[in-house]
Every structure is written in structure tokens, then in C-alpha cells.
């Protein structure tokens, strides 16, 4: 009876080992970017070294900060179906690599058993990174190393080439746009702020006018001439103010309240709290919160090659 158990456990262990060795499905590729937004390389089989992964991550993070292009790099031993293009396309589509509005996702897939390197570009990236350029980067920078199974050097060289190409393109379009100056939409915030300022100004002015209007001769010539202190409760200061019209000599007496900031015991006293807000206000600066892909779509652009 005991023997059976031993055989069963051995079988179970073999089954587990078997499932480990199985080729990856698209949904089984771990998305490290979702846990940590500074990471872009999914390297579940340890094909790339830690240093390479780190340098690629930092290159791609800087690239996204600068151009907004979202990249996913996947390096695995084996994939289900063995079709590198289809696999890379589904990786991009199902994870929504790239921004939704611009579809600027890029998927780079290396499958060592299939001996293939595949780039897939989102709809919006097809024009920026054409198929021919993808192929050129692969044949010039990656395949010579991949052919010798030097995955680290090849992948890093390829990513560097992609990065510099996209950066140059980005800088080129930036410089191209500059001379045209501001567009109308750049002015909107200023126009809006200006309108608010003017409206505020008008209100303040009207209020002032209303305040110094003489109820007797209807001229705006009331001046403050005298005041008498009444009370100061909890920092609220009450006083009687006398206004005299400069035109007809009519006098008005108002009771006015004002906040006394010098004696602010339980009154306002809010200054330090506002400063205190600055200490705790931001919790987003850390580098370890999860990222997300924007939901970009792919139309089959990009290029793949065998080495």
C-alpha cells in the first residue's frame, strides 16, 4: 500500500515538472509592469541577466517619460503555437500596450526555441517605426549576437537602437513644431484666467461702489470718518463706523464685524495647518507602485526575423 503512495507522489512531481516545462500561453506571460511601473521586461525563464533587464528597464522608462511610447519586452524559451508574430500581436492586444488615444505600443518578443525576434508596433507607431526600420535594427544590432546565443548583448543593443531611433524622431518632430509658435489652444488657460480675473474685478468694484453710495443724494461720495470700538469676542471685532457724504454732508452709522488676526485665540488661526498640508499631500513619488498599459490597439505592424 505504501508503495502506491510513493509512486503516486513521484507521478505528481513529474506532472508538476511537466507543466513547468510547457510552452507559454499569451495569458501566462507575467506582466511585471503592472506591479512596478518602472519595469518593462518580462523574463520568466531567466534568459536575460539581471543587469541587462535593469538597463533595459531604465532605458524604456526614460523613453516613456519622454515620448509616451509604452514598450513590452518578453523573452521566453518556448511559446504555444510557435507563431512569433501572432503571439506578440496577442501580447500587445490582450494587455493593451500603448496609450488608447494614440495606440503607440511596442512589443518586442524573443523566443529562443523558435529562434525568432519579433517587433509588433501599434497602429499609431507604424508610421514612426516602420517595418523596414524594425527589420534593419534586428539584422544589424540583434541577430549577429542572437546567432551566437548571446541574448544579453543582442537585446540590449536592439533596445538601444530602438530607443535612439524613437528619440531622434521625437526630437525631430518637436523641433519641427516649435517655429509655428503657440496654437490657439495653448492660449485657452490664459484667456480663461483673464476672464475670471476681470469678472472678479468688476464685482469687487461694484461692491465698493455700492458701499460708498450716499443714501441721501445717491452720489458715490461716502467716506469713513469715525469709528467706535464695541466688542472683541473670540477674535471677532465689532465696531461702529461713521460714514459722511462729502457731497451733501449726510452721515450714516454702520455696525461692522471684522476678524482680528492679532488676537486669534479660537478664531481663525489656520496658518500652520495649511503649511502642514504640504507635508502629507503627496504620496505618489515612490517608484514601487504598479503601472498600467493604456489599452492601445495593434494592426499587425512591425517585423520579425529568424536568426
Amino acid at each position: 500500500m505504501k508503495k502506491h503512495y510513493i509512486i503516486l507522489t513521484i507521478c505528481a512531481i513529474f506532472c508538476i515538472l511537466q507543466t513547468w516545462a510547457y510552452p507559454y500561453k499569451v495569458s501566462e506571460i507575467p506582466m511585471v509592469h503592472l506591479q512596478d511601473r518602472t519595469r518593462y521586461v518580462s523574463n520568466p525563464d531567466g534568459i536575460l541577466s539581471v543587469q541587462t533587464v535593469n538597463s533595459i528597464d531604465s532605458i524604456l522608462y526614460a523613453l516613456e517619460q519622454k515620448t509616451g511610447i509604452e514598450t513590452l519586452v518578453v523573452a521566453v524559451n518556448e511559446i504555444e503555437g510557435g507563431d512569433c508574430f501572432e503571439f506578440a500581436l496577442q501580447l500587445g492586444k490582450q494587455n493593451g500596450v500603448g496609450k488608447k488615444e494614440t495606440n503607440n505600443g511596442l512589443v518586442i518578443l524573443l523566443v529562443t526555441q523558435e529562434r525568432c525576434i519579433q517587433f509588433v508596433t501599434g497602429y499609431g507607431l507604424e508610421g514612426i517605426l516602420p517595418d523596414a526600420i524594425c527589420r534593419r535594427i534586428q539584422t544589424q544590432h540583434m541577430n549577429p549576437y542572437f546567432g551566437k546565443a548571446d541574448w544579453d548583448t543582442g537585446m540590449l543593443a536592439g533596445i538601444r537602437a530602438v530607443n535612439s531611433y524613437l528619440r531622434n524622431y521625437h526630437d525631430g518632430t518637436e523641433n519641427g513644431k516649435r517655429p509655428t509658435g503657440f496654437s490657439a489652444s495653448d492660449y485657452y488657460p490664459f484667456i480663461f484666467a483673464g476672464i475670471i480675473f476681470i469678472v472678479f474685478f468688476i464685482f469687487a468694484y461694484k461692491n465698493q461702489r455700492r458701499k460708498n453710495r450716499c443714501p441721501h443724494c445717491k452720489k458715490h461720495t461716502l467716506r469713513r470718518t469715525d469709528s467706535r470700538f464695541i466688542s472683541n469676542i473670540n477674535g471677532i471685532r465689532k465696531e461702529e463706523v461713521v460714514y459722511t457724504c462729502a457731497h451733501c454732508g449726510y452721515t450714516v452709522v454702520h455696525e461692522e464685524e471684522s476678524h482680528d488676526d492679532h488676537d486669534g485665540f479660537g478664531g481663525r488661526g489656520g496658518g500652520p495647518i495649511i503649511f502642514g498640508g504640504g507635508l502629507f499631500g503627496r504620496g505618489n513619488g515612490g517608484g514601487f507602485n504598479g503601472g498600467s498599459f493604456g489599452g492601445g490597439d495593434f494592426g499587425g505592424g512591425g517585423s520579425g526575423s529568424k536568426f
Binding site: F85, L89, A132, F298, G299, G300, G301, G302, S303, G304
Partner: peptide, 21 residues
């Protein structure tokens, strides 16, 4: 020939795009 290689890449990309569309 580089020109041919790139044309070929474009052609393959187009076949891929056709199947996707």
C-alpha cells in the same frame, strides 16, 4: 541588398496587417 530586405520586411508586415484586418 538592403533595399530588397526592407521591401521584403514591408511586404511581410503588409501580409500580417491583411490577416489582422
Amino acid at each position: 541588398n538592403q533595399n530588397f530586405q526592407e521591401l521584403q520586411a514591408q511586404l511581410e508586415g503588409t501580409e500580417n496587417r491583411i490577416s489582422v484586418e
